[in-house]
Simulated scan of single mutants.
Amino acid sequence: MRLLQALFFPPEQPGGVSSMIPYLQDRFNPPHWEMELFSLPKRIRGKGSEPVKFHTFDWHEFEESPIVQKYVQTYRDYLWWTKLRLQRPFDLIHAHHPIVGMAMKEVFPETPVIQSIHSSYERELILNGRIKPDGLEHRFLTSLYRELEHRTDLMLTVSRSFRDYLSPYVNHPEKIGVIPNGFDEKRFKPVPHENEVAQLVTVCRLVPAKGLDTLLEACAELKNRGLPYVLHIIGDGPIRKELEELAQRLGIYNETIFYGYTLHPEEFMPFFDIFVLPSRAEAFGSVFAEAALCSLALVGSDVGGIAEQIENGSNGLLVPPEEPILLADALEKVIGDPDYRYQLARSGSEYAKNHYSLNRVVHELKKVYLQFQPMKE
């Protein structure tokens, strides 16, 4: 079966789908499988020029928005690049971004296309303060879900909660499948260690949606309570300067280390003790599974896919989003009781191995792919 995994970002991008798809190639071996990866290079911008028409709505109603114009141009660019670079036919295409799924079905209308939706661009834009709820951009981006339902042969997403989020925007939400991201256990090597001072770590893009302002406020509360810790923030983004200034105002800058962008944080994540990320929304939250496989205790917000990964008090701790005092209470529990911290970390690791191993996800994907296997002549 000739299979194409079609991404938007090149696979070296950190997080989410890029933490899984490149590792699938070793599991889809000839002679039964031939799998290729495809993505749009960053340098391809402004190349596409053909008219864009959607089947389920008229995008020109939203074209006065620069964000909508940029999105449509990116779709044109992906179409241009696909037609230029892909010549051979495939038996099945698995797309991992809305732009990708629509472009692939436009170029290969006779080829089955499976569409995985890994996150919500519009929800991220709202939480990051870039667009307004029910504004032009929001309505355009949510209209794309019904367009994808119309064009593609099957829709998948990464958590039950995100399927619920998608439900109002499609005609048949019951047909959306759920397959979470999978992780190659060989990438994660827990390291036995004892830190005299608890080491907290978070890994994410530095944007408002991730709730790092709440985390810094919680850490200031920990300091007020006399609890020693170090907070390691791995990642970069548009609000890094704001976060550094907030850490200074809160008096915790000396306890906080900003690393910036790091390509493979899993290589040194095992040396920390507690992973914490109080996101305001999360479709899945791949970094929680990665941290669990590194045997870190997990503390996260009770939202979206995070709440599906963590059973509160069993394999991690959940707190409501935007509640720094409650977050500080949860962190105090795991900082002050190393035995409890170890128990959570061990349970979290076992849960991640059982539910999010790459082998399990590959098994699920193969069952789906074989439904589209071409008939032998």
Rank of each mutant, 00 (worst) to 15 (best):
V17M: 07
Q25W: 11
R27T: 13
W33P: 01
R43P: 03
R43I: 15
K47H: 15
E61W: 13
F62C: 05
Y71C: 06
Y78H: 03
W80L: 07
R88S: 14
L92F: 00
A95M: 04
P98L: 11
I99K: 11
G101H: 00
P109E: 07
T111L: 08
R139Y: 10
F140M: 12
T142F: 10
H150F: 11
V158E: 04
Y165P: 01
S167C: 12
I179R: 06
G182C: 06
P190Q: 01
V191N: 04
V201K: 02
C204F: 00
V207Y: 00
D213Q: 15
L216T: 08
E217P: 00
A220Y: 02
K223G: 00
G226D: 02
L231G: 00
D236L: 07
A247V: 01
I252H: 04
G260P: 02
L263R: 12
H264S: 05
M269G: 06
F271W: 04
I274Y: 03
P278T: 10
S279T: 09
A283R: 05
V287P: 00
F288E: 03
L298C: 08
V299C: 11
S301C: 06
G305E: 13
E308V: 08
E308W: 11
Q309K: 13
I310M: 12
E311V: 14
N312R: 11
N315S: 05
L317Y: 08
V334W: 06
I335T: 03
Y340A: 11
R341N: 04
L344M: 14
A345V: 08
Y351R: 15
N359D: 13
N359S: 15
V361F: 07
L365M: 15
Q371D: 13
